[in-house]
Design a protein around this nucleic acid. Sequence first.
RNA 1: GCUCCGGUAGUAUAGUCCGGUCAAGUAUAGUGGCCUCUCGAGUCACGGACCCGGGUUCGAAUCCCGGCCGGAGCACCA
Length: 489
Amino acid sequence: MPNADKYEQVVTRFSPNPDCVLHLGSARAIILSHEYARLYKGKFVLRFEDTDPKVKKPVLEFYDRIREDLDWLGCKADEECIQSDRLPIYYEYAERLLREGNAYVCTCQPEQFRKKSLSREPCDCRSLSAEENLERWQRMLEGSYSEGEAVVRVKTDMKHPNPAVRDWPALRIIDAAKYPHPRVGSKYRVWPLYNMAAGVDDHLLGITHVIRGKEHLTNQVRQEYMYRHLGWKYPEAIHYGRLKITGAFLSKSKIVQGMSEGVYTGWDDPRLATFAALRKRGITPGAVKKMIVDVGPKTADVTLSWENLYAYNRKILDPDSKRYFFVSEPIALKVKNVPKAFRAKLPLHPEKPELGFREYTVTPKGEDEAATFWVAKRDGDAAEVGNTIRLIELFNVKIDGVNADSLEASFASEAYDEARKAKAKLIHWIPKSSEVPCQVVMPDATVNEGIAENACKKLKSGTVIQFERFGFVRIDQVVPKLKAYFAHK
RNA sequence: GCUCCGGUAGUAUAGUCCGGUCAAGUAUAGUGGCCUCUCGAGUCACGGACCCGGGUUCGAAUCCCGGCCGGAGCACCA
């Protein structure tokens, strides 16, 4: 990180607008800010930028949701601040800028100003005296101007090559009665804009390193004028590129829109790339973190693929996820001539016997000494009469008949070696009446109906397990019905 | 249109500042083998990239110029 050693203590911040839940798009800002702060034994600040009660109105529930997301990511803030608590501070600096002739209250129509600005000309308000400006400022606060009639502009350079930099607006009026703020209500009618609020706070909070998206590049140029006016030094700034992930949109507005239209089941709908959704699916924060740290802070845009995230996640999950059987779209498999009762001891993890086992007893019944199992339709479809199939850790069977929704077979042998010799397919199974209904919600929000083995009843919600030959899932609820979310293969 | 960024395999990244050791490393994905009582993990091998064109140089992914492509900003949003 640039010039980290020049500062006594590195201070970074993450500053979301609480108008939506967090998603992967914010991951870079959060994780890099947090990791750098940790790396240099500094401080990481969470700052809620909720200064627009009108266009990007904050919503109370998101303040907490954002805190939860940060905790989940392991990026808990050392300090927190909320901009809507700090209006008097912004007023103070606005006044100072006005008093010192570095800002003015502009009453021009926005289009008018734009026109002037585009031709590099100052508007009439620019040359007002400090006294007049302070007077106008008082009127802004008191309510003599209504929404849109006056705005405080910070003086920059009307001839700056980038028109976006020229005398940018710092505070504006919002009809407080019409657009109350969820936290402070109608208490204020003059609200700071991003560059004013963020600029003042970055300095006052002692932020040494600002890590944000490159869309803020010109905001740095704008704010530097204000910093010069105030005699401050601008922090180090790192602007990273946009982050996309194939197949998901990382746009707050689209997420919010989809939510209000009811297309999603919640902020954690598996189709969304919100942290809440990732969490629900069993994507670990460690995987997200690793991926983001690997991507780093470069300015080029990146398009991540889910496969990459899954690979990181699998690496974390595989070593200690317990294994269970889940039969998707179950069909019955009847095996005849089972010579005796079998007891299958299935390890919960193939490489870690110390994690334990689950056991099932299979007892032949009736005249034909039959045992019945549930197997996946997919395996049934692949079966052919005459083939040998091995029921994992149990025995081998020979297929006698294939029907649309059931299979007939007869006992072939017990030894695993026999199955290997016959190149038999290994399939998973659940003894009939040892099953529990189970739904698996897939990443596209479709539901895979099936059954899980009885042992799953003892799982705790929140546990991530692997359904063998199916994929990693996170158990979401156990009662009244087993429900899991699919993570990945 | 104006003002800025950026472009290394399918994806992501290392190398670019301070030219040679880069006929380009790594991860993941792909293919093939081995291993494994999971379609998971492991393991071995293979295939795959410096946007294009000029220039400087003994030598350029790295420096310079031009082009092309991509992105961002140009809000009384953050």
